[in-house]
């Protein structure tokens, strides 16, 4: 009950921000919400199931490219978004079938390599994909349910609705029986196997759900901000969701949002000091693994807020 109130309160606060924020922060918050959807996907794989992937940029960028190329070829935004969703799931299924034969460090390297190969392939077929420069999506096509997504207000609304749906879906998932079996894989895979859970299929399902979130996030990013490109498939876009989840708290429902929001604020605040976010990302990553491996909400949960979902 407390958890439900908390989730709804967070969504209500985000909705209120839609009316209160100045235009610059408006765009930034919309971006944060879409990246938080991506991070929620990452959280399902890493935070709840314990699968530390370094290749989620693949699913994000696959969703983005599928959606963007479809729209370039004349498909409407709605169906194109669904294509992006599917692309995220299909790539996660394909890479998961292979990568899940490994574990631990090998799993990290294999996922990294798959994402790298995908990114290189996007560059190699640059004539079709637009390569590193990418391509803009025509403003006229960026309409959803009659809303003009080139405008700040509708854009924020769509980002918020998407985030709200994914957040509640994540909460439903992790408090379900299936969600419990995912957490069980993270906590003790051998015990789970001896309770009759198939580790391979359970983890594969987690990866596919994770990939679906990443795919829809990538597609939405393209539609909302009007640009797609292979630069969203670089290793950095695999690291970012990991960073958000680690910062906010892996295995907490609201950690991905908190991490994405805080990082955006940190990088924005530090932009006076450095012209590149690299150092901020680097310092935060190191600080987290050394001083706070559970992240913010994870530490709060450990320190007494046990009910935190």
């Amino acid at each position: 009950m407390k958890a439900l109130v908390l989730h709804l309160a967070v969504l209500a606060a985000l909705a209120a921000m839609g009316f209160l924020l100045p235009p610059y922060h408006h765009g930034m918050m919309a971006r944060v919400l879409v990246m938080a959807v991506f991070a929620i996907g990452y959280n399902i794989a890493f935070g709840y199931t314990g699968l530390l992937s370094l290749g989620h940029a693949l699913h994000f960028c696959a969703g983005m490219m599928a959606c963007g190329i479809a729209m370039r070829e004349g498909v409407a935004a709605g169906p194109a978004l669904l294509l992006g969703l599917a692309a995220g799931g299909v790539t996660a299924l394909a890479t998961g079938l292979l990568a899940l034969r490994t574990a631990g460090v090998s799993f990290m390297i294999v996922t990294l390599m798959f994402a790298q190969a995908f990114h290189l392939a996007l560059l190699y077929y640059g004539g079709f994909t637009g390569g590193d420069e990418g391509f803009p999506l025509p403003g006229a096509a960026r309409r959803l349910f009659g809303l003009d997504l080139t405008q700040a207000g509708p854009r924020y609304a769509v980002a918020l609705v998407l985030f709200g749906l994914v957040l509640l879906a994540q909460w439903g998932l992790v408090s379900s029986r299936f969600g419990r079996s995912l957490i069980a894989m993270r906590e003790n895979e051998e015990r789970s196997r001896m309770l009759g859970y198939n580790p391979f299929t359970t983890k594969l399902a987690a990866l596919v759900i994770s990939g679906l979130c990443a795919g829809i996030a990538g597609a939405a990013y393209g539609v909302l901000f009007g640009y797609v490109g292979a630069s969203f498939g670089t290793t950095q876009y695999s690291i970012l969701p990991m960073l958000y989840v680690l910062l906010g708290g892996a295995g907490t429902t609201l950690g991905p949002l908190l991490g994405a929001g805080l990082m955006a604020w940190l990088i924005d605040a530090a932009s006076g000091l450095t012209d590149s976010p690299l150092a901020v990302i680097g310092v935060t990553l190191i600080g987290l693994v050394v001083f706070a491996p559970r992240g913010i909400l994870g530490t709060l949960r450990q320190r007494g807020l046990k009910w935190l979902p």
């Binding site: 906590e187 003790n188 015990r191 196997r193 001896m194 309770l195 859970y197 198939n198």
Partner: peptide, 24 residues
């Protein structure tokens, strides 16, 4: 048959060295 499939058919195993989900 893999272990998890045997469990599904009704063979349960309790570990010699306690193996529970300590964090849950």
């Amino acid at each position: 048959l893999p272990a998890h499939a045997r469990v599904a058919r009704g063979i349960a195993y309790t570990f010699q060295i306690t193996s529970i989900y300590a964090g849950l």
